[in-house]
Amino acid sequence: MYKLVVENLAKRFDSRIVFKDISFELTSGESIAITGPNGSGKSTLILCMLSQYRPNKGKVSYLSDQKILSEEEIQQNCGLVSPYLNLYGQLTAEENIKFFTSIRGKNITGNEINDLLIKVGLEGRGNDNVAEYSSGMNQRLKYAVALANKPNILFLDEPTSNLDDQGKDAIASIIEEVRLNSIIVIATNEKEEYSLATNKCRLGN
């Protein structure tokens, strides 16, 4: 059982306060939708939770069965899908999936990669260079890379951006499946997306 604890988190850039006093707790099987107008700090909050920005106040803790996870354990258990996270364009989809799995110290077989590519709708495109992908295909591949790691905590920033209707349906069913056993944090303004979450956190006015 994993737990994500956010306590009194605050972030400002120079004198501009992005958000303050953000607190919530999530355990495996729970999810939260972070909503708010553009520039309200949804992505910043996600990056703070992933230790990519240092918060000005408060803290974020990850626990597994009451034990606080180390930085390496957090890396192994977290996944992120977002528009500002890029994959290697000169590598193929399969090579990207293999690299991001191996660098976390996990193994993945060719069959498992194929299954993932089928799941995200990239069947038969695994050997193409990612640079040749459309933005929608790139988004699908980001899900495959995140899922290959079997994340216990999944962060989704604008989860269906660039996706067509078929892609949105595929991603919705993936989120439904993953959220049964994992924590999901979704940053979005789309009603369809935040209806997938069990909790809600609104930023800004």
Partner: peptide, 16 residues
Amino acid sequence: DSGTALALRLSAPPDA
């Protein structure tokens, strides 16, 4: 420049 640094920071230990 290619925007892959974030993915790397989230996946790989700094020493590696």
